[in-house]
């Protein structure tokens, strides 16, 4: 436990992980979107090409996209706007009301979809409790049981806020109530 009474000082990585989660958005978003569908890279390439074909656009050949997608997902290169817009089309359900998202601007629509995808990927309270129990049971841990319990309790408290914010967002966007997880 830190001098300020927070759990952060004693936790192994929270600040590091948090910084990465907040800054590495675009590449992480693209990867998460793809993985949320269970698609491998070649499938993602096919979906992008299909979206382009449906709107009469020319895009890179399949093998070219198969090379580019991992670079975008690693953050080595940023996709050009045409490809960002294709991603929006492919994942428009994750965006909710795409027309409203587009009215907000591409960057906000992307961020909205990214945050929703991250929220959907969070473990539920039961999974967090299971992690807590496993951590408590593990010998030789570098933090105290109280700190482990505090970590889990804080995670669940924030998870509850996430659920509320998702509902608030759905209401603002006119989504079906109860959409998303947790």
């Amino acid at each position: 436990m830190g001098a300020d009474g927070s759990i952060h000082a004693a936790s192994p990585f929270p600040r590091c992980v948090k910084v990465r989660a907040l800054t590495d958005v675009t590449s992480e978003t693209l990867r998460r979107w793809r993985e949320s569908r269970g698609w491998d890279v070649p499938r993602m390439a096919r979906e992008l090409r299909r979206a382009a074909r449906d709107s009469g656009e020319d895009v890179a050949a399949h093998h070219g996209l198969v090379k580019m997608i991992p670079r975008w997902e690693r953050g080595d290169r940023a996709p050009r706007e045409r490809y960002r817009l294709l991603y929006l089309r492919v994942f428009q359900d994750a965006l909710g009301d795409l027309s409203h998202g587009m009215a907000l601007g591409t960057d906000v629509a992307l961020r909205l979809a990214e945050v929703r995808a991250r929220a959907a990927g969070l473990p539920g309270p039961g999974e967090i409790r299971a992690l807590e129990a496993a951590a408590l049971a593990k010998p030789g841990k570098p933090v105290t049981p109280a700190e482990i319990r505090a970590l889990a309790a804080e995670a669940i408290a924030h998870l509850n806020v996430v659920a509320g914010k998702l509902m608030e967002l759905s209401a603002l966007l006119g989504d079906e109530p109860g959409e998303g997880k947790p």
């Binding site: 992980v17 473990p123 804080e154």
Partner: peptide, 28 residues
């Protein structure tokens, strides 16, 4: 504006959960 605000707040709370879950997993 309201949507932007809620998205920002959601982002922050999701990051808080992610950080703590990552810490718990790191302990394991």
């Amino acid at each position: 504006d309201e949507i932007r605000r809620v998205v920002a707040e959601l982002d922050a709370h999701v990051a808080e959960v992610e950080a703590r879950v990552a810490a718990l997993k790191a302990l394991l």
